[in-house]
Design a protein around this nucleic acid. Structure first.
Length: 693
DNA sequence: ATTAGGG
DNA sequence: CCCTAAT
């Protein structure tokens, strides 16, 4: 369907990031100040949702609303808008929420349903700016409640059907110039208009929705995201909503107290929550002081909310524990968000493509400059939907705020430490030939700049440590974006590693007024296929100079992190032949099933090889040995080693079978075993008989 | 903490 | 390589 075509983001086509570097939130958000406002750009693991309590999810919903409402209240104090109307009907909320016509490229798509949260949020926002009239407060609070209610309700069945029950991504409208599109928009009977406006107020809004092609209950990707990258002094919060109520899990927090308060509040909401969308009568009923009290609490919570948001954001990071321990290790950890796997496996395994010739690249860059193209491209960078898989962070409750910040910063740095590459899209197609000039590629200065788009892809996952230590922190700077872009073309290609995630950069041609009607090109892009992703490796890494540090958090990248384990762990380290040999040797002596011993024996000094690694490697070795040499990929393992692998594997499999048998035998007859072969094994006595090889 | 097996 | 269940 068109909808899918247009907006689908096929998860299967998205390469996986190294798990160490998966983040749920939008790093760009972090890089801008929206960090404060938008801590909810997260996806969740449906598998885990059963574990989440209603309260938790409600709390989250509340938190989101609080975030939005509080900010809007704040906003409205300075600039009160007065074109909101009265006499609202909840029906208009609910219904209009579900069927909205998406305007896209002058091509109306058929009515689609969007996530309720978004629509509601926009309604809420416009309402909340209303400061006139005696009932405005009451109304506001009622509205809040209604909103929350709607948020917590399920999706319209018809809609979910339409989107295959698997609508995953939505993006929240970005606010580009500090002027929220929500503001001053009455939703009374005009929700659609408001929504349209919201949908694409500036032309920044692109491929808002992503749909997973996987099964409905598997690998859900659903977090809303819009990044406001362009400069804004006082950005209005963009509040993403998760579609379902159970989507967010909260764990223990530092600000326990606030949490409890929130919990209490959410309980109140819960108590007052009608089963479905609130009707007219409901609304009236809600216009009681009781709810207003709640609403006013929003302001009370304003302060703590920021703290909460901060933590929430922090917790969106997940640093996986594995062979390496997180920086902070303590029993009580904050395990906040769980996310399903965004990325499909198959995209990971591909081997790097042919390297781009450096000379060619320079030539291309020179011709670019010769064309004077770079000076013509006055563009603004907008980044939306920077989706990165999860990162997991553990911090002890005794950790200081500063250390928390550092940890996040480290995670971010680790994430982008491998460098970021830019992909070029022309008319939605990837322009891969870096050696071509812009004109050769069909990019001309005066016509189709609108058709130009960029993607950001993670740089080589390989050796991020060196990347970190040798290069300045990679900071995205929107101010320097055009320069970065053009200069990036001149950057010699270093194409190793595997793209981990993509990020679409809609391009704007008007720096003065981003709210032009330029359609971001990336939205008309069919999402990259595996093929294109493979080839995207030829893209150029872009070391972005740090020109706007303040756009980042107040945290600085500490030097220590440059060499920290964080940066080192979880990177792909192919086993070398010698390592394989050592592994084979060890397994021959020790056997399968005692990987700890194997590790101790053969890889004691290599801390990055865990016994799990070794076991996995053995597994793949066995597999490799079993398949025909033609089917083998990657660096070829000497057949001799593979033969040994097979022999050892067979031997120890048999050995294990014997053990099992004797065990059962003993169980049946109650005969205790005296001479257990395991003893001999442990001493390294037993080993694959050489003769069998 | 290890191990085994699925993804 | 990751994740998880089972031990």
């Amino acid at each position: 369907m068109v909808f899918k075509k247009r907006f689908a983001f096929n998860v299967h086509d998205v390469p996986r990031a190294p798990r160490s570097m998966r983040v749920l939130f939008d790093p760009v958000d972090v890089l801008t100040r929206s960090i404060k406002y938008n801590p909810f750009g997260l996806a969740v693991d449906l598998k885990s949702q059963s574990k989440w309590t209603v309260e938790e999810s409600q709390f989250c919903a509340f938190e989101m609303l609080a975030s939005l409402a509080g900010k809007l209240l704040q906003e409205s104090e300075s600039s009160a808008s007065s074109n909101a109307s009265e006499g609202h009907e909840c029906d208009s909320i609910g219904k209009n929420c579900f069927k909205q016509e998406i305007q896209y490229e002058d091509k109306p798509l058929k009515p689609k349903c969007f996530e309720q949260g978004r629509c509601e949020a926009s309604v809420a926002a416009s309402e909340l700016t209303t400061e006139n009239g005696g009932d405005s407060k009451d109304f506001r609070c009622a509205e809040n409640n209604a909103i929350l209610e709607c948020t917590l309700t399920k999706m319209d069945p018809a809609c979910s059907e339409e989107i295959n029950g698997d609508l995953k991504y939505g993006s929240f409208p970005g606010n580009v110039d500090g002027h929220s599109p929500y503001f001053g928009e009455s939703y009374n009977g005009k929700t659609e208009n408001a929504f349209k406006q919201e949908r694409d107020p500036t032309g920044l809004e692109t491929q808002a929705l992503n749909i997973s092609n996987k099964g409905p209950s598997k690998d859900p990707v659903k977090f809303d995201r819009v990044v406001k990258l362009l400069s804004r002094r006082d950005p209005v919060p963009s509040v993403p909503f998760t579609r379902r109520r159970n989507d967010i899990k909260l764990g223990s927090r530092d600000d326990e107290e606030n949490f409890s308060r929130f919990k209490r509040l959410s309980k109140r909401f819960k108590a007052s929550r009608p089963p479905t969308c609130i009707g007219d009568r409901r609304i009236r009923k809600l216009l009681t002081s009781k709810y207003w009290k709640v609403a006013t609490k929003l302001e009370d919570f304003e302060h703590s909310r920021f703290v909460s948001s901060y933590f929430l954001l922090i917790f969106v990071f997940h640093i996986f524990q594995g062979g390496k321990r997180p920086l902070y290790r303590k029993r009580k950890t904050y395990t906040l968000y769980k996310q399903r796997k965004i990325f499909d496996r198959k995209s990971v395994t591909s081997s790097p493509g042919k390297d781009m010739n450096g000379d060619k690249c320079s030539t291309a860059a020179m011709s670019d400059r010769a064309c004077g193209i770079s000076s013509v491209f006055t563009v603004k960078f907008s980044i939306k939907s920077f989706r990165i898989p999860e990162l997991y962070i553990e911090v002890p409750e005794t950790a200081t705020v500063g250390s928390l910040k550092r940890t996040v910063m480290e995670a971010v740095t680790a994430l982008i430490g491998g460098g970021i590459r830019v992909g070029l899209l022309l008319q939605g197609k990837k322009v891969r030939d870096d050696s071509r000039t812009l004109s050769q590629a069909g990019i001309s200065c005066d016509d189709n700049l609108d058709a130009l788009g960029f993607t950001l892809e993670p740089g080589p996952a390989k050796a991020p440590t060196t990347m970190c230590s040798e290069e300045p922190p990679l900071l995205l700077s929107y101010d320097a974006a055009p320069q970065n872009l053009t200069s990036s073309l001149a950057t010699p290609a270093v194409n190793t590693g595997i793209p981990n995630c993509t990020l679409n950069l809609p391009l704007l041609t008007n720096s003065e007024n981003p709210a032009t009607d330029h359609e971001p090109v990336s939205s008309k892009t069919d999402m990259p296929t595996d093929q294109s992703l493979l080839e995207s490796r030829a893209l150029v890494p872009v070391p972005v100079p740090a020109t706007n540090v303040e756009a980042l958090t107040a945290v600085t990248v500490n030097q220590k992190f440059q060499k920290s384990e964080l940066a080192q762990c979880r990177i792909w380290r192919p086993f070398s032949i010698s390592e394989v040999e050592a592994l084979v040797q060890a397994v021959e002596e020790i056997g399968t099933g005692r990987w700890r011993d194997v590790k101790l024996r053969a890889f004691d000094s290599t801390d990055h090889r865990t016994y799990v690694n070794l076991k996995d490697k053995w597994k793949t070795l066995v597999h490799t040995a079993k398949i025909s040499p033609q089917q083998r990929r990657g660096d070829p393992v000497p057949q001799e080693l593979l033969d040994r692998v097979l022999v050892a594997h067979a031997y120890w499999a048999q050995h294990q079978a014997k053990k099992q048998q004797s065990k059962h035998h003993h169980h049946r007859h109650g005969t205790p075993s005296i001479t257990d072969t395991t003893e001999a094994d442990r001493k390294g006595v037993a080993r694959v008989p050489i003769g069998t090889m």
